[in-house]
């Protein structure tokens, strides 16, 4: 099962979900995908489809309007999966903290594995976040094997 875990780490497909951010972090994420930072080096692809994704990349705070969507997308992702939150507002609510419609960080709705702070988070940070996320993915994969 070692191969399986290696493959898991080597091929994280991403579902990017904007949960109501200011778009600052989204631009940074796109920058990470674009030639300068080129995260496809690590096999990362923006697949846009929860059913095939391994990483849920969320920007923006959870709010009353779309927390259900967030939950649904998370549920539609098959195990093994990790959730990475990019940006301060997604982590805690950030600049939107205490706004009437905002619930707070993404972790109010779905379990979050990695928080990438910053307003906006820089691509290097996002890549760092990915590396941490992939370690967690590997751990989850191992646990799944042992759990059998």
């Amino acid at each position: 099962m070692d191969i399986m875990n290696k493959a898991r780490v080597k091929s994280p497909w991403v579902l990017h979900f904007n949960c109501g951010s200011c778009n600052g972090c989204d631009i940074e994420i796109l920058a990470a995908l674009a030639p300068r930072f080129d995260v496809e080096r690590f096999g990362i692809i923006n697949i846009g489809n929860p059913k095939q994704a391994d990483v849920l990349l969320v920007t923006g705070p959870a709010n009353r309007r779309n927390f259900r969507v967030l939950k649904n997308l998370y549920d539609q992702m098959p195990e093994t999966k990790v959730v990475i939150v990019v940006g301060s507002c997604g982590s805690t609510g950030g600049v939107f903290y205490n706004c009437p419609n905002v619930l707070g960080g993404v972790d109010k709705v779905v379990p979050v594995d990695v928080y990438v702070p910053g307003c906006a988070a820089r691509p290097e940070q996002i890549i760092d976040g990915f590396i941490l996320g992939l370690q967690k993915l590997a751990e989850k994969g191992k646990k799944k094997v042992e759990g059998r």
Binding site: A7, S11, D38, D54
Partner: peptide
Amino acid sequence: SRIGPPVLQPFYDVIKLWGKKPF
């Protein structure tokens, strides 16, 4: 003008997909 994934990337993808929880 990117570097791109390793040549074996498609195999990683398929193996990973095979190991995922089936929906």
